[in-house]
Amino acid sequence: MEHSQELTKALSELKRITGVALEVADGAGKEDIESTLTQIRCLCAAYKEKYNKTDFLHGLMTGGIPAYDIHERAARLHISAGDPRVLYLLESRNMDEAVDEILKNLFPAQTKTYLVPISDNMTAVLRPLRPGETSGDSRRIARTIVDTLNTEALTRVQAAYSFVIDSLTDLPEAFRETGLALKVGKLFYSDQTVFPYNELGIGRLIYQLPVSLCENFLKEIFGPDIPDSFDEDTLGTVSRFFQNNLNIAETSRQLHMHRNTLIYRLEQIEKRTGLDIRLFEDAMTFKIAIMVLNYLQTERNP
Protein backbone atom coordinates (compact mmCIF):
# COMPACT_ATOMS: atom_id res chain seq x y z
CA MET A 1 0.00 0.00 0.00
CA GLU A 2 2.81 2.32 1.01
CA HIS A 3 4.68 1.56 -2.20
CA SER A 4 1.60 2.10 -4.25
CA GLN A 5 1.07 5.57 -2.78
CA GLU A 6 4.69 6.56 -3.27
CA LEU A 7 4.59 5.26 -6.82
CA THR A 8 1.44 7.22 -7.62
CA LYS A 9 3.09 10.35 -6.18
CA ALA A 10 6.27 9.79 -8.19
CA LEU A 11 4.29 9.18 -11.39
CA SER A 12 2.30 12.34 -10.91
CA GLU A 13 5.51 14.31 -10.25
CA LEU A 14 6.98 12.85 -13.46
CA LYS A 15 3.90 13.87 -15.40
CA ARG A 16 3.93 17.35 -13.86
CA ILE A 17 7.48 18.17 -14.81
CA THR A 18 7.90 16.24 -18.09
CA GLY A 19 4.38 15.78 -19.39
CA VAL A 20 5.10 12.03 -19.75
CA ALA A 21 2.35 9.80 -18.32
CA LEU A 22 3.34 6.23 -17.37
CA GLU A 23 1.34 3.37 -15.93
CA VAL A 24 2.49 0.38 -13.90
CA ALA A 25 1.27 -2.99 -15.15
CA ASP A 26 -0.82 -5.07 -12.78
CA GLY A 27 0.83 -7.85 -10.84
CA ALA A 28 4.18 -6.16 -10.33
CA GLY A 29 6.06 -7.50 -7.35
CA LYS A 30 7.41 -5.52 -4.40
CA GLU A 31 10.96 -5.52 -5.78
CA ASP A 32 9.76 -4.41 -9.22
CA ILE A 33 7.90 -1.50 -7.66
CA GLU A 34 10.91 -0.43 -5.61
CA SER A 35 13.14 -0.51 -8.64
CA THR A 36 10.54 1.40 -10.71
CA LEU A 37 10.25 3.99 -7.98
CA THR A 38 14.01 4.52 -7.91
CA GLN A 39 14.14 4.84 -11.69
CA ILE A 40 11.29 7.36 -11.81
CA ARG A 41 12.90 9.46 -9.07
CA CYS A 42 16.21 9.44 -10.91
CA LEU A 43 14.40 10.38 -14.11
CA CYS A 44 12.70 13.30 -12.35
CA ALA A 45 15.96 14.48 -10.79
CA ALA A 46 17.81 14.22 -14.10
CA TYR A 47 15.03 16.00 -15.94
CA LYS A 48 14.90 18.80 -13.40
CA GLU A 49 18.65 19.16 -13.52
CA LYS A 50 18.74 19.28 -17.29
CA TYR A 51 15.59 21.12 -18.31
CA ASN A 52 13.91 22.82 -15.41
CA LYS A 53 15.04 26.44 -15.14
CA THR A 54 12.85 27.14 -12.11
CA ASP A 55 14.32 24.25 -10.21
CA PHE A 56 17.84 25.33 -11.12
CA LEU A 57 17.25 28.93 -10.02
CA HIS A 58 15.54 27.79 -6.83
CA GLY A 59 18.51 25.55 -6.06
CA LEU A 60 20.92 28.34 -6.88
CA MET A 61 19.17 30.86 -4.66
CA THR A 62 18.95 28.55 -1.69
CA GLY A 63 22.60 27.51 -1.99
CA GLY A 64 21.92 24.03 -3.34
CA ILE A 65 24.21 24.37 -6.35
CA PRO A 66 27.99 24.59 -6.00
CA ALA A 67 29.68 27.62 -7.54
CA TYR A 68 31.78 25.55 -9.94
CA ASP A 69 28.62 24.06 -11.45
CA ILE A 70 26.65 27.28 -12.00
CA HIS A 71 27.94 28.38 -15.41
CA GLU A 72 27.78 24.96 -16.98
CA ARG A 73 24.26 24.22 -15.82
CA ALA A 74 23.08 27.71 -16.71
CA ALA A 75 24.49 27.25 -20.23
CA ARG A 76 22.70 23.91 -20.58
CA LEU A 77 19.43 25.62 -19.63
CA HIS A 78 20.13 28.53 -21.99
CA ILE A 79 20.24 31.01 -19.12
CA SER A 80 22.80 33.71 -19.74
CA ALA A 81 25.02 33.82 -16.67
CA GLY A 82 26.42 37.30 -17.27
CA ASP A 83 23.26 39.40 -17.86
CA PRO A 84 22.63 42.10 -15.26
CA ARG A 85 19.44 41.32 -13.33
CA VAL A 86 17.49 42.37 -10.25
CA LEU A 87 15.81 39.90 -7.91
CA TYR A 88 12.39 40.77 -6.51
CA LEU A 89 10.82 38.78 -3.69
CA LEU A 90 7.05 39.01 -3.36
CA GLU A 91 5.10 37.90 -0.35
CA SER A 92 1.35 37.70 -0.07
CA ARG A 93 -1.09 36.09 2.33
CA ASN A 94 -2.31 33.96 -0.53
CA MET A 95 -0.08 33.44 -3.56
CA ASP A 96 -2.91 31.80 -5.42
CA GLU A 97 -3.38 30.88 -9.07
CA ALA A 98 -4.55 34.39 -9.92
CA VAL A 99 -1.28 35.90 -8.66
CA ASP A 100 0.69 33.33 -10.68
CA GLU A 101 -1.27 34.07 -13.83
CA ILE A 102 -0.89 37.83 -13.42
CA LEU A 103 2.86 37.57 -12.92
CA LYS A 104 3.23 35.24 -15.90
CA ASN A 105 1.38 37.70 -18.09
CA LEU A 106 3.15 40.72 -16.68
CA PHE A 107 6.48 39.06 -17.49
CA PRO A 108 5.87 36.86 -20.53
CA ALA A 109 8.57 34.38 -21.62
CA GLN A 110 10.05 36.79 -24.17
CA THR A 111 11.11 39.14 -21.40
CA LYS A 112 13.50 36.47 -20.07
CA THR A 113 12.15 37.07 -16.60
CA TYR A 114 12.07 33.98 -14.42
CA LEU A 115 9.33 33.38 -11.86
CA VAL A 116 10.45 31.04 -9.11
CA PRO A 117 7.99 29.88 -6.45
CA ILE A 118 9.80 29.84 -3.10
CA SER A 119 6.97 28.86 -0.77
CA ASP A 120 3.19 28.95 -0.55
CA ASN A 121 3.23 32.68 0.07
CA MET A 122 6.44 33.78 -1.60
CA THR A 123 7.57 34.09 -5.21
CA ALA A 124 10.87 35.31 -6.62
CA VAL A 125 11.02 37.32 -9.84
CA LEU A 126 14.42 37.45 -11.52
CA ARG A 127 14.21 40.22 -14.09
CA PRO A 128 16.91 41.33 -16.52
CA LEU A 129 17.82 44.99 -16.61
CA ARG A 130 16.65 46.53 -19.91
CA PRO A 131 18.94 48.83 -21.89
CA GLY A 132 18.99 52.23 -20.25
CA GLU A 133 17.55 50.96 -16.97
CA THR A 134 19.51 51.48 -13.79
CA SER A 135 19.18 50.25 -10.24
CA GLY A 136 17.05 53.36 -9.67
CA ASP A 137 14.28 51.84 -11.79
CA SER A 138 13.98 48.86 -9.46
CA ARG A 139 11.77 50.73 -7.00
CA ARG A 140 9.38 51.77 -9.75
CA ILE A 141 9.18 48.20 -11.04
CA ALA A 142 8.62 46.79 -7.55
CA ARG A 143 5.92 49.41 -6.98
CA THR A 144 4.29 48.49 -10.30
CA ILE A 145 4.25 44.78 -9.44
CA VAL A 146 2.68 45.51 -6.05
CA ASP A 147 0.08 47.92 -7.46
CA THR A 148 -0.83 45.55 -10.30
CA LEU A 149 -1.32 42.63 -7.92
CA ASN A 150 -3.32 44.87 -5.59
CA THR A 151 -5.66 45.98 -8.35
CA GLU A 152 -5.89 42.82 -10.43
CA ALA A 153 -5.69 40.04 -7.83
CA LEU A 154 -7.13 42.22 -5.05
CA THR A 155 -4.54 40.86 -2.71
CA ARG A 156 -2.10 42.47 -0.31
CA VAL A 157 1.50 42.11 -1.42
CA GLN A 158 4.83 43.22 -0.02
CA ALA A 159 7.98 43.26 -2.12
CA ALA A 160 11.70 43.58 -1.60
CA TYR A 161 14.38 43.91 -4.24
CA SER A 162 18.09 43.29 -4.53
CA PHE A 163 21.13 45.07 -5.88
CA VAL A 164 21.94 44.62 -9.57
CA ILE A 165 23.26 41.09 -10.02
CA ASP A 166 26.01 41.08 -12.64
CA SER A 167 26.49 37.33 -12.65
CA LEU A 168 24.42 34.34 -11.62
CA THR A 169 27.09 33.49 -9.07
CA ASP A 170 25.84 36.54 -7.10
CA LEU A 171 22.28 35.21 -7.00
CA PRO A 172 22.58 33.33 -3.66
CA GLU A 173 23.83 36.51 -1.97
CA ALA A 174 21.11 38.59 -3.64
CA PHE A 175 18.50 36.10 -2.40
CA ARG A 176 19.85 36.33 1.16
CA GLU A 177 19.92 40.13 1.05
CA THR A 178 16.44 40.43 -0.46
CA GLY A 179 15.00 37.90 1.98
CA LEU A 180 16.51 39.93 4.79
CA ALA A 181 15.07 43.13 3.34
CA LEU A 182 11.60 41.56 3.26
CA LYS A 183 11.85 40.32 6.86
CA VAL A 184 13.33 43.55 8.22
CA GLY A 185 10.91 45.67 6.20
CA LYS A 186 7.86 43.79 7.47
CA LEU A 187 9.12 44.03 11.02
CA PHE A 188 10.29 47.61 11.26
CA TYR A 189 8.69 49.47 8.36
CA SER A 190 5.29 47.82 8.29
CA ASP A 191 3.60 50.94 6.92
CA GLN A 192 5.38 50.40 3.59
CA THR A 193 4.96 47.77 0.89
CA VAL A 194 8.26 48.00 -1.01
CA PHE A 195 11.56 47.39 0.77
CA PRO A 196 14.79 48.13 -1.08
CA TYR A 197 17.77 46.01 0.07
CA ASN A 198 19.81 49.17 0.73
CA GLU A 199 17.29 51.19 2.77
CA LEU A 200 16.89 49.09 5.89
CA GLY A 201 18.64 51.52 8.22
CA ILE A 202 18.93 50.57 11.83
CA GLY A 203 16.43 47.73 11.34
CA ARG A 204 19.07 45.66 9.54
CA LEU A 205 21.49 46.15 12.41
CA ILE A 206 18.99 45.06 15.05
CA TYR A 207 17.78 42.10 13.03
CA GLN A 208 21.27 40.70 12.79
CA LEU A 209 21.99 40.94 16.52
CA PRO A 210 21.84 37.72 18.55
CA VAL A 211 18.75 37.42 20.74
CA SER A 212 20.83 37.18 23.94
CA LEU A 213 22.51 40.49 23.16
CA CYS A 214 19.12 42.13 22.53
CA GLU A 215 17.80 40.80 25.82
CA ASN A 216 20.83 42.14 27.70
CA PHE A 217 20.33 45.54 26.07
CA LEU A 218 16.67 45.62 27.12
CA LYS A 219 17.55 44.54 30.68
CA GLU A 220 20.00 47.40 30.84
CA ILE A 221 17.26 49.85 29.93
CA PHE A 222 14.15 48.45 31.54
CA GLY A 223 15.70 46.44 34.39
CA PRO A 224 14.65 42.85 35.08
CA ASP A 225 10.97 43.50 34.19
CA ILE A 226 11.19 43.95 30.45
CA PRO A 227 7.73 45.04 29.27
CA ASP A 228 6.03 42.92 26.59
CA SER A 229 5.18 46.13 24.85
CA PHE A 230 3.91 49.63 25.54
CA ASP A 231 0.27 50.56 25.20
CA GLU A 232 -0.90 52.04 21.91
CA ASP A 233 -1.42 55.51 23.39
CA THR A 234 2.15 55.69 24.64
CA LEU A 235 3.59 54.32 21.40
CA GLY A 236 1.44 56.68 19.33
CA THR A 237 2.47 59.69 21.42
CA VAL A 238 6.16 58.80 21.27
CA SER A 239 6.01 58.06 17.56
CA ARG A 240 4.45 61.47 16.85
CA PHE A 241 6.94 63.18 19.20
CA PHE A 242 9.82 61.61 17.26
CA GLN A 243 8.25 62.49 13.91
CA ASN A 244 8.18 66.11 15.08
CA ASN A 245 11.85 66.05 16.04
CA LEU A 246 11.13 66.16 19.79
CA ASN A 247 9.07 69.34 19.42
CA ILE A 248 6.56 69.43 22.28
CA ALA A 249 4.45 72.34 21.01
CA GLU A 250 3.97 70.85 17.54
CA THR A 251 3.31 67.33 18.89
CA SER A 252 0.69 68.49 21.39
CA ARG A 253 -0.98 70.51 18.65
CA GLN A 254 -1.08 67.57 16.27
CA LEU A 255 -2.34 65.21 18.95
CA HIS A 256 -4.98 67.73 20.08
CA MET A 257 -3.55 67.38 23.54
CA HIS A 258 -2.59 70.03 26.07
CA ARG A 259 1.13 70.64 26.30
CA ASN A 260 1.08 69.66 29.99
CA THR A 261 -0.67 66.36 29.21
CA LEU A 262 2.05 65.52 26.73
CA ILE A 263 4.76 66.44 29.22
CA TYR A 264 3.03 64.29 31.84
CA ARG A 265 3.03 61.32 29.44
CA LEU A 266 6.71 61.82 28.65
CA GLU A 267 7.48 62.00 32.35
CA GLN A 268 5.61 58.75 32.93
CA ILE A 269 7.93 57.12 30.38
CA GLU A 270 10.91 58.57 32.23
CA LYS A 271 9.57 57.20 35.51
CA ARG A 272 9.24 53.77 33.97
CA THR A 273 12.45 53.61 31.98
CA GLY A 274 14.73 56.29 33.34
CA LEU A 275 14.87 57.78 29.85
CA ASP A 276 13.96 61.42 29.37
CA ILE A 277 13.06 61.24 25.70
CA ARG A 278 13.06 65.03 25.42
CA LEU A 279 16.84 64.63 25.29
CA PHE A 280 18.31 63.42 22.00
CA GLU A 281 20.48 60.64 23.47
CA ASP A 282 17.65 59.19 25.56
CA ALA A 283 15.24 59.51 22.65
CA MET A 284 17.63 57.55 20.45
CA THR A 285 18.07 54.84 23.10
CA PHE A 286 14.29 54.58 23.56
CA LYS A 287 13.68 54.37 19.79
CA ILE A 288 16.21 51.53 19.47
CA ALA A 289 14.79 49.79 22.56
CA ILE A 290 11.28 49.82 21.06
CA MET A 291 12.62 48.41 17.79
CA VAL A 292 14.50 45.68 19.68
CA LEU A 293 11.38 44.92 21.70
CA ASN A 294 9.34 44.53 18.49
CA TYR A 295 12.04 42.34 17.00
CA LEU A 296 12.16 40.03 20.03
CA GLN A 297 8.39 39.74 20.09
CA THR A 298 8.35 38.67 16.46
CA GLU A 299 11.18 36.22 17.09
CA ARG A 300 9.22 34.68 19.97
CA ASN A 301 5.85 34.66 18.19
CA PRO A 302 6.66 34.30 14.49
Binding site: N105, L106, P108, Q110, T111, R140, R143, T144, I145, V146, D147, T148, N150, T151, A153, L154, T155, R156
Partner: peptide, 18 residues
Protein backbone atom coordinates in the same frame (compact mmCIF):
# COMPACT_ATOMS: atom_id res chain seq x y z
CA UNK B 1 -10.71 42.56 -0.65
CA UNK B 2 -12.08 40.40 -3.46
CA UNK B 3 -15.38 40.05 -1.62
CA UNK B 4 -15.88 43.79 -1.10
CA UNK B 5 -17.11 44.46 -4.63
CA UNK B 6 -14.63 47.22 -5.29
CA UNK B 7 -12.25 48.03 -8.14
CA UNK B 8 -9.02 49.95 -7.89
CA UNK B 9 -6.91 52.11 -10.16
CA UNK B 10 -3.49 52.91 -8.77
CA UNK B 11 -0.63 55.14 -9.80
CA UNK B 12 1.76 52.42 -10.98
CA UNK B 13 -0.45 50.38 -13.24
CA UNK B 14 1.04 47.91 -15.71
CA UNK B 15 -0.64 46.59 -18.82
CA UNK B 16 0.11 43.05 -19.98
CA UNK B 17 2.58 43.76 -22.79
CA UNK B 18 1.76 40.83 -25.08
Amino acid sequence: PKDRDIAMVFQNYALYPH
